[in-house]
Write a protein that binds this DNA or RNA. Structure first.
Length: 416
RNA sequence: GGAGGGGUGGCCGAGCGGUCAAUGGCAGCAGACUGUAAAUCUGCCGACUUAUGUCUACGAAGGUUCGAAUCCUUCCCCCUCCA
């Protein structure tokens, strides 16, 4: 492994964040002597980010930890246009209020990973609506558009790929890279930002931004991308049984988040420890050396540390304790997902499938029935054989009924 | 504007008058084996208190027919070529 002079580049490289850089040596030299301001753009289409963005957040975190200044750029302006690369079905346009609410909500996630403020090394939350909203077409074209040649843009991978495959590429999408490039220029002017980071899929956009900032800003600026993270089996990261792995506790409780990491594939543990925890590389090396079933210990560390970063140490330990009691002792943890159902609703007996549906373990009554039929449903650790069975409040111990769908999805029903 | 091709379940993609809730693949869920892993094998995979039942669904609206995802008409959208 090559060594670098700056702690920033050394850290990012050693931990596996480096995929491509426009000028690695230049960046290394600069980071070794100056405080570098760098940014990453985030979408504001939802009120939470999910683990897909976590890698980017961690890069910002390491920037700050190595003495530099990170900027989280919210795409408040670009979100208004909507990413055109998806499917047709005219996506509903988000209102300003929604976008601003989303940004405010997402900010609480950044707060866990970054220290914001006004000091020279404090992180900054920025919003490209601040400059994109007021853009005027003609002046923009004259100032910025003249620096983009179609010839050059046509060579960008993202464009070329579409053209080669004879897939449509709208003018709107074509402009996206210009707007994104413009963000870099604005941030450079406003904050002296000289580095843009992002996922490898952003390479083309980042390069355009770098060139634009170099030309108009006449500055030495850098682009840096992280590899696309897939699991060892090749799947995109971030999906679980319950859907996307969100970073807001309202969307995914700490316990669920912990379980997501706990279930990491063997082959991914070391890589994920480096990318998603603060543990030193020495410690990680020790954990990585564990083989066979012992690697589960490494997974517990990964889950605990990753959860502690996002949800706090206390919540992480509670989640770990719940997992321990639930899986290692076959008991019940306090942190398991819980649904409250009034005793009156049980009456003479509530159908078992209805209970599974309401507990969130099945998306429909039919799915719950299938679950029972397939032998995956358990009531208080007893396998359910009859899909038409019904349950009354007698099933509760201390007012709690334990439901399991498969080995890993467990929920509690609290009779109130 | 002209000519041609197309819009099918989360995605890809068959079907082209009945046997179609719709082949197949991917993704997902469950079972077995295990270590809350992977790989493998097996089952499930529109909704409804499950029913040789009803409803919803093959871009939208009408129509033909005993019967339509499949045929006709109009409209919307996408692609290719020409202008």
């Amino acid at each position: 492994m090559s060594t670098f002079r700056s702690e920033l580049v050394q850290t990012l490289s050693a931990r596996g964040f480096l995929h491509q850089c426009t000028d690695l040596e230049g960046l290394d030299a600069k980071a070794a002597k100056d405080v570098v301001t760098g940014y990453i753009g985030f979408d504001a289409t939802a009120d939470s980010l999910h683990v897909g963005s976590l890698l980017q957040i961690m890069m910002l975190r390491w920037m700050q930890k190595t003495g530099h200044r990170p900027i989280a750029l919210m795409g408040g302006g670009t979100t208004k246009i909507g990413d055109p690369s998806g499917k047709e079905e005219s996506r509903q346009l988000l209102t300003d209020e929604t976008i601003n609410a989303n940004i405010a909500s997402i900010q609480t996630i950044f707060d866990r990973f970054l220290t914001f403020g006004t000091g020279p090394k404090d992180a900054i939350l920025s919003n490209n609506a601040d400059w994109l909203d007021g853009l005027q077409y003609i002046p923009f074209l004259r100032e910025v558009g003249r620096h983009f040649t179609i010839n050059r843009m046509l060579t960008m991978d993202s464009v070329k790929m579409r053209l080669d495959r004879e897939q449509p590429l709208t003018f709107l999408e074509f402009n996206y890279m210009i707007l994104q490039g413009y963000d870099f220029l604005e941030l450079f002017k406003r904050t002296g930002c000289t580095l843009q980071l992002g996922g490898s899929d952003q390479w083309g956009n980042i390069v355009q931004g770098v060139e634009l900032a170099r030309r108009i800003g006449e500055a030495q600026v850098f682009g840096f991308t992280s590899p696309l993270i897939t699991t060892a089996s090749g799947a995109k990261m971030g999906k679980t049984a319950a859907g996307a792995v969100w970073l807001k506790p309202e969307r995914l409780a700490p316990y669920g988040y912990y379980q997501f990491w706990r279930n990491t594939e063997d082959a991914d543990v070391g890589r994920f420890l480096k990318l998603f925890t603060d543990l030193s590389l020495d410690e990680i090396a020790k954990l990585e050396a564990l083989a066979g079933a012992e690697i589960n210990d490494a997974k517990k560390v990964l889950a605990l540390e990753a959860t502690a970063l996002l949800h706090g140490r206390a919540a992480a330990e509670e989640a770990a304790e719940t997992a321990r009691r639930t899986f290692e002792q076959g008991g019940i943890g306090d942190d398991l997902p819980t649904v409250e159902i009034p005793a009156a609703e049980f009456g003479a007996g509530m159908p078992i499938w209805s209970l599974f549906h309401r507990a969130g373990l099945a998306a429909s009554n039919g799915e719950a029935r299938r679950l029972v039929r397939g032998g995956g449903a358990k009531l208080n650790d007893q396998k359910i054989d009859d899909e038409n069975a019904s349950v009354n409040t007698d099933a509760a111990t201390d007012g709690v009924i334990k439901l399991s769908a498969g080995k890993k999805r467990i929920a509690l029903v609290r009779v109130v």
